[in-house]
Design a protein around this nucleic acid. Structure first.
Lengths: 211, 211
DNA sequence: TGTAAAGTGTTGCAAATGCAACACTTATTT
DNA sequence: AAATAAGTGTTGCATTTGCAACACTTTACA
């Protein structure tokens, strides 16, 4: 199910795609899908497979910015795909549909009965992305690793929670350290302190908060 | 001129506002405008005046997250207005129009001739905000104050620049330190080192890059 | 215009952090 | 099943950073 076409039937989706002049491509594993990207702004829908946005700095160090899977959407206006050092790599065989931004308001589409649902979906996707960005900024502006971790845990608890103060870490430590932009080993050290001081308990991937 | 109604005449704007069930309020200076905010998601248009989004932490320290002026737009889905510790204060006499998100796709509005322009404007606003968030995240993930400053300067040069490697700082040092989430005095120190090592020159608010 | 408020530059010091290196465990791949 | 890659926990050490305090300048405003 593709977020952008939620509540739109298969048949209507195909029609909308045609009107939007969408084009679909299939990529093997480990392909840089935007190597020959043109100038126009676009949205990319991942129909099947996985794509990673990777940042490579001037020394060659690589960081995974985002992992995107089937149903998800990305594009020039929602991610900094055009920035220097950013590449977009398929992790497996992947099917992607591209829609040019200008087509989103073309003359034909606005007459379509499902346009209003399509627009609603698009706006929802954009505002959801804004929300995830705002949350990350809130975490990144914390000055210490401890504050970042505590704020992240609190957020995870609220998000997944039934008020149980218990949740499962959805990221590896390496990924979490990247997400919070701290050194992995320093983060592990801080986690140890938090456990020793009784702020949290950790059983495997499960975290229990005591604050 | 309100971004959300760009390319829409005064007359049509009033009509759209009526269909969208928009309501306008006038606030004196230093008022917390969202003290009695309801549950529904909304967009707020600043018609006149200035509003600041302020974060107050558990110790009472305040940080200005965003300053918004006439023509700009904010809302529950684009800013973390609902988060704990966030307040929204008028800096002067301010006129604000509220539109509920659900109204953006109401039955009447989608028949309006100017709806398509309105939607285009809304999508443009959302993607612009996403872009500013992405840039800030890119800066905040730099590990050192030096890297944050160099990346910020590079960005400012690209943005305002004619390739002259010269631009005017649009923020006070205090504001820039908050934006980059570093200690102000430590930032001043780092700026001094950057000047001493010849990476930058600074004449008043003007910055000249040598890298 | 005079006073209060906000911003700036500087510095010593303690604390937090990144870095590097290593051994070890867990996944993934062939 | 063996081999390779990715992730984890730990530690010493150098560096960076935040913090606090202060004097001084600039801006805002009553």
């Amino acid at each position: 199910m593709i977020k952008l076409f939620e509540n739109i039937s298969e048949k209507e989706m195909l029609q909308l795609k045609r009107i939007l002049r969408a084009s679909t491509f299939q990529y093997p594993k480990n392909i840089n899908i935007l190597s020959n990207v043109n100038r126009d702004d676009f949205i990319a829908l991942i129909e099947k497979g996985t794509v990673e946005l990777i940042y490579t700095d001037y020394e060659g160090n690589k960081t995974v910015i985002e992992e995107l899977t089937a149903g998800e959407v990305f594009g020039t206006l929602t991610s900094s795909i055009r920035s220097e050092g950013i590449t977009c790599i398929t992790k497996e065989e992947t099917l992607i549909t591209f829609i040019e931004y200008d087509q989103i308001t073309n003359d034909e589409i606005i007459k379509n009965d499902f346009y209003i649902i399509f627009v609603k979906n698009l706006i929802k996707i954009l505002t959801e992305q804004l929300s995830t960005r705002n949350i990350r900024i809130e975490l990144l502006t914390k000055r210490t690793t401890r504050d970042k971790l505590l704020a992240y845990f609190k957020y995870m608890d609220q998000k997944t929670g039934d008020g149980s103060k218990t949740f499962k870490l959805p990221l590896t430590h390496t990924e979490l350290a990247n997400y919070l932009s701290v050194d992995r080993s320093a983060m592990t050290r801080e986690l140890k302190y938090l456990k020793e001081e009784g702020f949290i308990e950790q059983i495997g991937k499960k975290i229990i908060l005591h604050y």
